[in-house]
Amino acid sequence: MALPAKLQDVVDLFATFDDQADRTNLLLSYADKYREVPPEVATRPFGSGHLVPHCESEAYVWALKQPDGTLKLHFAVENPSGISVKALAAILEGTLSGLPAAEIAEVNPELVESIFRHNISMGKGMGLMSLVQAVRSLARAAS
C-alpha cells in the first residue's frame, strides 16, 4: 500500500541521495528536529504502556486523538545516543500527525529500510521497525 503523501515525499527524498555521507547528514538533520513529548502530554516516569518494545534506545510513543478525528503523535527517546530513533520519530511526527488514524494504521514498517539503508546497524533495524509498529498499533486502537 502507498505511504501517506508527506511520508512518501521523505522516502523519495532519501532515494535521491546515493552518497552515504549525504544520507547520514539528512538523517542527522531530522534527528535535530526531534522534540520530546511536551509535559502537558506526559512526564517522567513515562508509562510502560507507551514503551516501544524491542527498541534498545528506550523510546516511548503517544497518539492523541484530535477534535477533527486526526491523530497527533509524540515521542520520547531516553537514550542520548538514540540518534536513529530520534530521526525516525521526527519523520513520523512531521509526516503522520494530522492524518486520520485509519491512514496511519496502514503505514508499512518497511519504510525503515528505504530511509536508513546502510545506516541500519544490527540491533537498530528491529527497534526502528518496532517504532513504526507501535505507531500503527496506537492508530489501530484509535480508529
Binding site: T24, N25, L27, L28, A31, S81, I83, S84, A87, H118, N119, S121, M122, G123, K124
Partner: peptide
C-alpha cells in the same frame, strides 16, 4: 560504534 550515525552526530 555499532551505530553508524553516532560519530557523525
Amino acid at each position: 560504534n555499532e551505530d553508524t550515525l553516532l560519530y557523525s552526530s
